[in-house]
Amino acid sequence: MAALLVSAALVLADAPQRVVSINLCTDQLALLLAAPGQLVSVTRLSHEDTDSVMGDQARALPANGSGAEEVYLLKPDLVLAGTFTSMATISMLRNLGIEVVQFAPARALSDVPDRLAQMGEALGREAEATAMIDSFNADLAALSAAPAQRPRAALTYVNNYSSGRHSLAGDVLFAAGFDNVAEEAGLGSVGVLPLEQLVLLAPDVIIQGRNYPGAARAEDNLDHPALSSLKGTYLAGELTDRDWVCGTPTVLNAVRTMVDLRRDVEARQ
């Protein structure tokens, strides 16, 4: 017993004590898994409810702007970053002797358990990560029962961007029982699906993503009258939002919304 306690204390002593996260998605993974007091700062984006699913928890911690200078002054012993975080920032921090762990963005639902495990290991919270992975897998299995019929759907974002099968959003759509028309257009991951092509594909449902204040011409494609002129196409409005961005267990909310939408579309047909 005593030996066990000693080894547990050793593990704890081994775990990082001051962790700073400089990426929106590592913020959320760390907020889910970190021990109380272990995480000392998250990014400014995490404080915004438009971008972050965990605004309340995030606002309890001070925000950082992801710059090397301010992160260094927080005296972290571990920095959590994305693989697309500025290389200059990461190499600067490493040169200053700080350990940086980088997390790749999730491109599929199956990446979520991997990221949870990686975060559990980085924070020395393997047991919590394993429990979370088990409940994620169980919830996902319950949600993604195979439907009798798969409606054809398209995801469209600003500037005519769309997500194909090999992206997190595309995988959410697939798991919820939709076929993705972007695949018919030859779009594998994320890319441009021109408005003309989208109209000619005439999907059963168009799911649009937009949740930013202020005007941008980039969003004009979402309001184009050609979309509402399509007979037999249901415009599902603004459904993609912060739940879709990061590979964390909250992405299941997106799957749940899409399953509801599929039932809705089936009822209309």
Partner: peptide, 10 residues
Amino acid sequence: LSPNPFAAAE
């Protein structure tokens, strides 16, 4: 200055 992240690109 726009709050929309896509505005600057336009």
